[in-house]
């Protein structure tokens, strides 16, 4: 296989910060009808469906490929976790409920030429968004702690 130089965007603009409600909704477990279907592609063993029932589950799956491994040396024991990223963007908007994240994936990830390049950039987009989630959650937890402290003091 001849490799090509990886082209990914240098900067990705920050997304509009999510609300507490959006974060709660986006991190919930989803029903059967709202699952995302991924596949693990395993040379020799074949391909198998992986049903994903939450955003965190999907992120672990999507970013779980060991791209640095000697991918297809005969006999190699590795796998590529693959998700149709068009479907992933739709799923983010319709099932997870994070439209800004879906738009960011559509704008910065889908136009890239290869799945490998897409996943590298997706990792950055998801990382930014998860930082925002954590920030919102952190503020909420801090407020809760402060409220509890005030209550105790009272």
């Amino acid at each position: 296989m001849t490799t090509t130089e990886l082209e990914t965007p240098e900067t990705i603009p920050a997304l509009t910060p999510p609300s507490v409600e959006l974060v709660d909704r986006a991190l919930r477990d989803l029903d059967y009808e709202d699952r995302l279907v991924g596949y693990k592609m395993t040379p020799s063993a074949g391909n198998d469906r992986a049903n994903l029932y939450s955003l965190p589950q999907a992120i672990v799956f999507l970013l779980g490929t060991r791209w640095d491994s000697p991918m297809l040396t005969p006999g190699f024991k590795g796998a590529i976790n693959w998700v149709d990223l068009n479907a992933f963007a739709n799923w983010l908007r319709d099932a997870v409920g994070d439209a800004p994240l879906a738009s960011a994936v559509e704008e910065h990830v889908l136009p890239l030429d290869s799945y490998y390049a897409q996943v590298q950039t997706l990792s950055r987009v998801l990382g930014m968004r998860m930082d925002q989630y954590r920030e919102v959650r952190g503020v909420v937890e801090q407020e809760a702690d402060e409220a509890e402290t005030t209550e105790d003091a009272g």
């Binding site: 296989m1 001849t2 090509t4 590529i80 693959w82 290869s114 799945y115 490998y116 390049a117």
Partner: peptide, 9 residues
């Protein structure tokens, strides 16, 4: 198929 994932031949 794997090559296509890397944008390669």
């Amino acid at each position: 198929s794997i090559a296509s994932l890397f944008g390669a031949q």
